[in-house]
């Protein structure tokens, strides 16, 4: 595997292999000294054309725990809008010496395009509303870790909210269904993709009708700007129809879990404190994110096998 760009390009077998590798990394992360020399001498550049603190820190931590050197590059949104060349940025960093680029961009396709200009491995850290494949890996891992088993067969997963603008939803739907889960997407039609021909999902416009039937309630973030383009009449109305509040949390199926990719919009999609929900795995996702990203980095840059302790 040279790049990690799109869940659609990854076979079910490779996905399971990555989940198993994530479990190995989670074991390393539980050690008193959570660090192995597996990627010593390798350089990982995190190139974020779009601001993101969480994903960036998660990748940064993952690379360091594998002993890679990390090169950080943050381009402000304004300099990109001025037409700063992505190609020049990548070629400049590569000339300094990079083994893997971790790329985030507000527009779909940029990480895939960069593969044309670089010999390094490219990891998609989120591109537009297209893909966020490491999120799908960490989400799949978190669900598998909770429910057990080799994959997600038999689980009913509802993804609730702004699927239209969500790269998380696109990657998760592909990963979850590849791993055998049944996925329902829930939201008003304005926030669902306009043409879902071929999507392996059920579609539902009422949160209440899936709340008691799901093993996983996966809440998506609703960007507050969405109401400016008439995607929803108001945030308040959205919260009433599609927010997870106490009453809905109580009606959740026994043993089911709540997930969210973060950052949460409290009072919009999250109308209940996650700490008050017994089965919120939201922070577990963040923890597992480091392990999942270690697995991807090791898969692309490592020597194969399982990372070993320092001799």
């Amino acid at each position: 595997m040279k790049h990690f760009l799109d869940i659609a390009e990854i076979s079910r077998e490779s996905l399971i292999e990555l989940l198993d590798m994530t479990a190995n990394m989670a074991e390393i992360n539980r050690r008193p000294v959570p660090k192995v020399p597996a990627l010593r001498g390798k350089v990982v550049a995190t190139v974020f054309f779009e601001d993101s603190t969480r994903t960036r820190i998660s990748f940064d931590t993952a690379a360091k725990r594998l002993s890679a050197d990390v090169m950080g590059f943050a381009a402000s949104a304004s300099s990109i809008n001025k037409g700063e060349s992505i190609r020049d940025t990548i070629e400049t960093l590569e000339a300094i010496g990079v083994d893997a680029f971790v790329i985030r961009h507000k527009t779909g396709g940029v990480p895939a395009t960069v593969t044309k200009w670089s010999d390094a491995s490219i990891i998609n850290a989120g591109d537009g509303a297209n893909q966020h494949p490491t999120q799908a890996l960490l989400d799949s891992y978190t669900i598998r870790e909770h429910f057990g088993g080799q994959d997600l067969t038999g689980l009913r997963i509802s993804i609730v909210g702004d699927v239209r603008h969500s790269r998380v939803a696109r990657s998760d739907i592909q990963a979850f269904t590849k791993l055998g889960a049944a996925v329902t997407i829930v939201g008003p039609s304005t926030l669902l993709p306009s043409d879902m021909t071929g999507w392996p999902v059920e579609v539902c416009n009422e949160f209440d009708s899936v709340i008691g039937e799901s093993d996983v309630i996966y809440m998506l973030r609703l960007q507050r700007e969405r109401m400016n383009s008439a995607f929803v009449p108001s945030l308040d109305e959205y919260a009433q129809r599609f927010g997870l509040d106490k009453s809905r949390a109580k009606r959740m199926r026994a043993g089911s879990i709540v997930m969210h990719p973060g950052p949460m919009n409290r009072g919009v999609e999250m109308c209940v404190d996650p700490a008050e929900i017994p089965n919120s795995l939201i922070l577990r996702q963040v923890t597992n994110g480091v392990s999942a990203r270690m697995a991807v980095l090791f898969k692309l840059l490592g020597a194969g096998g399982i990372p070993e302790d320092e001799g």
Binding site: G108, G109, G128, A129, N130, Q131, R164, H165, S166, R167, R170, P193, S194, D195, M196, T197, G198, W199, S229
Partner: peptide
Amino acid sequence: TEGAVMHEGSCCSHLGLPGWP
């Protein structure tokens, strides 16, 4: 067509890009 980059259809929905209807 604000922000549109491609035809609004199944391909556009799949890629998560804003579409020209």
